[in-house]
Amino acid sequence: MNTQDSHTAPAPGVTLLVNGTRHHLAIGPEVTLLDALRERLNLTGAKKGCDLGQCGACTVILDGKRVNSCLVLAARAQDRPITTIEGLAADGRLHPLQQAFITHDAFQCGYCTPGQIMSGVALIEEGRGHDEAEIRKHMSGNLCRCGAYANIIAAIREAAART
């Protein structure tokens, strides 16, 4: 945890490192990472579905780990690398999981999809993408009301096999 004494207090605000770009935001300590991304940086790929850490639509990758960005204060994410759905295909080529979601029709309305994909990318990194029981267990924090789960499982398995 960063601690600052009064002699070296930083400029007010928060510096976020999002998809490889550094942003300084004049925001207070009460702003969540999700609201900083959506309302300050116009990165609206991360979705708000509950604001309570119950649905997973806001999942982003922080320091290599998936987090519900609605439960992380932006100030706690200061200077730590953040990847959002917008940064996943930064070079213009879809990540294998993004492509697999299209191939397997792993969504309908698409609203939970950025969160599902970020969670799935992290899950594959965690080495859990090959086993269906593991996928089911470790993706159940990402709700899909359209009920595309069966296709999401297929998409994750295919992407895991390719990576």
């Binding site: 991360a46 708000k48 996943l88 698409g110 609203y111 950025p114 994909i117």
Partner: peptide
Amino acid sequence: LPRVDGPDKVTGRAHYAADFP
């Protein structure tokens, strides 16, 4: 056929009601 809006939905480019600046 796969969804024509698939690329927008998997990249965060699909804009819903609260996503318009």
